[in-house]
């Protein structure tokens, strides 16, 4: 994720921080990546629509759609939200709790099936 090797970042470092606000100086990463992600996201959405029409409804199809959603989220968070270029620890703080939530999504959808039979 991050190219910073030093974990302890000193905010009094005027080379990497704005000396009046102590906001980390950011570098531009170019626009090629952004358009690449746009095409990937469009492709994944089209793949979703194709799957919707060719694959009869089933729980495995739902799991496929959620996995596709997570893939799209990966590209949006990674490139559009610049998570790739952030400090690794920040990424873990955000992504780990969401991993549990995604599991919970699968779980409750599956359990809902049995509510009528309890």
């Amino acid at each position: 994720m991050s190219s910073h090797t030093n974990n302890n970042v000193d905010i009094h470092d005027t080379e990497n921080y704005d000396p009046t606000t102590w906001v980390p100086k950011v570098e531009s990463h170019g626009t090629k990546d952004i358009w690449g992600r746009f095409w990937i996201l469009s492709f994944l959405t089209i793949a979703d629509i194709v799957a919707y029409f060719v694959w009869p409804p089933s729980m495995s199809r739902n799991i496929f759609f959620i996995v596709m959603g997570v893939l799209k989220a990966w590209f949006i968070v990674g490139t559009f939200m610049h998570m790739k270029h952030e400090h690794k620890k920040l990424g873990y703080m955000i992504i780990l709790p969401m991993a549990f939530i995604i599991f919970f999504l699968f779980w409750m959808m599956y359990e809902g099936n049995f509510w009528g039979t309890i």
Binding site: N8, V9, W22, L90, M93, P97
Partner: peptide, 23 residues
């Protein structure tokens, strides 16, 4: 005295808010 995530306070708090909103 340092920024463990190497982001400004405002940006970190935006991430924390987004995580709570995601919940």
């Amino acid at each position: 005295g340092n920024s463990p995530f190497n982001v400004s306070y405002g940006k970190l708090m935006m991430w924390v808010f987004l995580l709570s909103d995601a919940f």
